[in-house]
Design a protein around this nucleic acid. Sequence first.
DNA 1: GTGGTCTAGACCACA
DNA 2: GTGGTCTAGACCACA
Lengths: 130, 130, 130, 130
Amino acid sequence: MVLLDSKDRRPIYEQLTEKLSDLMIAGVLKEDEALPSVRTLAADLSINPNTVQRSYLELERRGYIYTVKGKGSFVSDNAKIQEHKKQLIFTSLDALISQAISVNISETDFMRQVSVGFRNASTNLREGSL
Amino acid sequence: MVLLDSKDRRPIYEQLTEKLSDLMIAGVLKEDEALPSVRTLAADLSINPNTVQRSYLELERRGYIYTVKGKGSFVSDNAKIQEHKKQLIFTSLDALISQAISVNISETDFMRQVSVGFRNASTNLREGSL
Amino acid sequence: MVLLDSKDRRPIYEQLTEKLSDLMIAGVLKEDEALPSVRTLAADLSINPNTVQRSYLELERRGYIYTVKGKGSFVSDNAKIQEHKKQLIFTSLDALISQAISVNISETDFMRQVSVGFRNASTNLREGSL
Amino acid sequence: MVLLDSKDRRPIYEQLTEKLSDLMIAGVLKEDEALPSVRTLAADLSINPNTVQRSYLELERRGYIYTVKGKGSFVSDNAKIQEHKKQLIFTSLDALISQAISVNISETDFMRQVSVGFRNASTNLREGSL
DNA sequence: GTGGTCTAGACCACA
DNA sequence: GTGGTCTAGACCACA
């Protein structure tokens, strides 16, 4: 279900947090569905349960999952997760625009690049290259 | 010339690398101009010379500066630096667009947010709040 | 009669204990009235009988209910339960006041906040938002 | 500087987080002052560095401290910490008022108890019993 | 069975 | 030296 990339230089718990939230956003993990147990997932990924635990803690802190003691962890409201992710994206976009301005990229140039980006992405999707 | 933010969570060498490249992009540090010596800058910023050295190495790796043994470090071609930074920004933008698509942000919504971002940024600049 | 909130982070037995004592305090469960049997309640709530058992034990420890072997569990004196709960609340209040003093909240400010709190609570009640 | 209470049933990292934030609120740890290093504090308290680390992480998440890689952790703006704590107290107060209403404690009774609480607290302070 | 806390101890990045 | 991540493994609370 989840694959970690050993070449990715981010810590394991961070990669895992992202992979899991992607699965929730994509609807692969649905509302109120149980996540694999900390131990099971740790065994599957050949990592330490503490590392998985740390991801689950972070996901709970963000409100993406909720945990019932003795029972397990479950997916929260998918719509809320998606909304939260949108906010994160728009915040990143604002930061990127500040940088763009600092190197004299005009709004028009930026927009053109956005068009290109969306076109490429949709092409990639059609070709299944993602 | 450079001010480091102790509350910035990035490592010092990374902040310094960014500040210096910003100065080159903005043209404050001009082509072939000498950068302060590692020791001078370290003393000015009250940081470890090793940390400054690390930034200089990173800037050299990127081709932003060149080092002449026994003479010091000098700024490379400003235009190239700016071009390089633009590429970095556009690469980040592509990544952000992929994420946007995954949460069903349409190209139109994205564009709208870009407009807002540019408008806010220019307002901030006029008011000197940056 | 009782609804558990799966997203509440407290353990189930603790939520159940509170819900049941609230019902006794509110007089929904009256003096000497029988509580549902452990098995019945467990089935109704789709939880483990051990969990219900644990709540009943806790309620008995507090003197809120009494158990007659072979017959079941029964509500104790409602007035006493309410009195006990009041004591708990006032104890919490004292602790909160100590904390308030540590951050220099004056008695006047505290009182003002109490007024606001009561006003909001009564508004909520009128609007049925609880 | 900090003493842990083995009778306190809360986890060590939570007690420690509270003790440290109390020291910051009381001004014992002042703005931009360095906290003891993770290893030092762990040794002093005879607990594992990971446990101290967890407290520091939580304090950073709350904005009470900031961490500079390779240098250590430092106290943030004391005023902000105090303000944050005030909000926590007022939130707890609101919850307590809801409970008070459920057992028919009138606003007047509640106010009376607040007065008593403040009076006792100030007496305790004068007698140094805290 | 489930998650939560903690220890002992290693190894890494950064200053 | 500093903090950050991770493992191996124990023990606890809860269902």
